[in-house]
């Protein structure tokens, strides 16, 4: 780690005020930030410790949804009865990520701001446009087994590593933010961005913005949903491909569908066309496969990760099948 100052924020407003200075970063769980500071990838000049701000509650919202405090721990969120009952795919997604220890530390807000696990991003001796804009992308033409097949650019093929965010994307969560300009709401689909020619920017947050909560709408697809994560070992590994799937069923027919993918793009990947392709269709592997092909129509593989295209199709079919068969429904 490089030298930095440390201060504990007394309130959200205090935090936002302190973060206005250049080189400042919030620290909450610390699980990703301190990791990257030790690797010399991130070099903040000061840390504002927000971990003790009263933003750790999980509360009902007026519209029947749930407000997840930005500083609620991942584990507490995953094991919350309301989350487990009403948003099982979210609980499953959280528990599929990291380890029990890390879930006890990591906050929901911090999870949204996780940086990519791209090897080149982590290794300061190699080129990476995300870490050092203009230095090039090491992964293109390099080692890219874990990289993006959708929405990448010629500057960056990194993927977002979160599991939680994939479920939040599927659920149409809304991120509540307070910042120098006041408070605002960011629909989840607009929270993360694609790399384009500015891969160093992961989200649409502005300097000084503090995530205060993540709001879940009332609809949680509890009856027909799942989170499927495919990885290189049984646990404690990032997704090669993951799928959050939620269905509303009308007998054997799909009335509404939500489908978000992790491990395939710079952000959790949603595709309205693929979801639309499911509506009114029978819940069969054929219609699921057809929707998967819509979602993957522009997928592009690299030397080591082309298998992800086929794998993603299979994973989508499996996840939708499980969702339709209530595999992910909360235990009675």
């Amino acid at each position: 780690m490089r030298s930095f100052t440390y201060a504990r924020a007394g309130s959200a407003a205090d935090a936002v005020g302190r973060a206005g200075a250049t080189g400042m970063a919030f620290v909450a769980g610390g699980t990703n930030l301190l990791d990257l500071m030790k690797a010399d990838v991130l070099r903040p000049e000061g840390l504002v410790d927000i971990s003790r701000l009263p933003l750790d509650r999980i509360e009902e919202t007026a519209d029947g949804g749930l407000r997840l405090g930005a500083l609620a721990r991942n584990a507490d969120t995953a094991y919350d009865d309301r989350v487990q009952t009403r948003y099982p795919m979210l609980s499953m997604a959280i528990l599929a990520g990291a380890s029990a220890q890390l879930r006890n530390m990591a906050t929901n807000g911090g999870n949204l701001l996780q940086r990519t696990r791209c090897y080149y991003f982590y290794d300061t001796a190699t080129p990476c446009n995300k870490r050092e804009p203009g230095s090039g992308c090491g992964a293109i033409g390099g080692v890219n087994r874990i990289h993006a097949i959708l929405g990448a650019s010629d500057r960056c093929i990194a993927v977002h590593p979160s599991d939680l965010c994939v479920a939040l994307a599927a659920l149409d969560a809304v991120v509540q933010v307070t910042g120098p300009e006041g408070e605002r709401s960011i629909p989840f689909a607009e929270f993360h961005r694609l790399p384009g020619d500015r891969p160093e920017i992961d989200t649409t947050l502005q300097p000084g913005d503090l995530v205060t909560s993540i709001d879940l709408p009332a609809k949680g697809f509890a009856e027909h949903s799942t989170y499927l994560k495919i990885r290189d070992r049984a646990s404690y590994a990032f997704a090669l491909v993951s799928v959050a799937a939620g269905l509303e069923m009308d007998g054997g027919t799909v009335r509404e569908a939500r489908l978000a993918l992790g491990g395939v793009a710079h952000k959790p990947w949603r595709d309205p066309e693929a979801e639309a392709a499911l509506v009114g269709k029978p819940a069969t592997p054929d219609s699921f496969r057809a929707a998967a092909r819509v979602l993957l129509r522009d997928a592009k593989g690299h030397e080591h990760n082309s298998f992800k295209i086929d794998l993603a199709e299979r994973a989508i079919v499996r996840a939708l099948t499980d969702a339709a068969e209530r595999k992910g429904a909360p235990r009675p």
Partner: peptide, 16 residues
């Protein structure tokens, strides 16, 4: 995983 252009093992940690 070695990046042969860099001659460097890239997944040099316990995560990857």
């Amino acid at each position: 995983f070695t990046d042969h252009r860099l001659g460097r093992v890239m997944n040099h940690d316990y995560a990857e």
